[in-house]
């Protein structure tokens, strides 16, 4: 079942894949925890992210979304919690995915600095996004 043939095996990159095209389960430690986190967060994001897309981009659209839309939406704590949970799961899932790609293709000091940079960006975005979800308060509209 563990046919460990990397897609780019001709280019010197070796990725341990199952024949079905998933990463081989790590033996233990942080890599195993992150491997499990990717699957658990992914299953929650199927509902959170697709739900978000259907609500905002299919049933609503960019033509009905503006500041007032956000004010009304964020009057409900439920949507703040929804967005906050999605923000954390999606960023941790996405940035860990990118970290795995960096580990596959980069080596040495470049890899170390690339991983540090992406963790730095991830922490800044988590802080910024959490601040918005928690602290947003409607500002008085000009002339209104």
């Amino acid at each position: 079942m563990n046919g460990a043939a990397g897609f780019g095996s001709g280019s010197g990159v070796q990725v341990n894949l199952t024949s079905a095209g998933s990463r081989v389960r790590p033996a233990g430690g942080w890599e195993l925890r992150l491997w499990l986190f990717m699957r658990a967060s992914g299953m929650l994001l199927v509902f959170l992210a697709l739900g978000h897309l259907f609500i905002m981009h299919v049933f609503n659209s960019i033509h009905s979304i503006d500041y007032q839309f956000v004010v009304e939406r964020y009057a409900k704590v439920f949507w703040r919690a929804y967005d906050g949970l999605m923000l954390w799961l999606a960023l941790l899932h996405g940035m860990n995915g990118l970290r795995v790609i960096v580990d596959d293709y980069l080596r040495g000091a470049v890899r170390v600095w690339a991983v540090r940079a992406l963790y730095g960006v991830m922490i800044l975005l988590l802080a910024l996004g959490s601040w918005v979800v928690i602290a947003f308060e409607p500002m008085k509209m000009a002339g209104g």
Partner: peptide, 22 residues
């Protein structure tokens, strides 16, 4: 996944602009 992550980063930045008003 890479494509979605790129959009997610941009989307967090644009949404944060609500803090600066309408």
């Amino acid at each position: 996944g890479l494509g979605v992550l790129l959009f997610l980063v941009i989307h967090i930045l644009d949404t944060a602009l609500v803090l600066w008003g309408a």
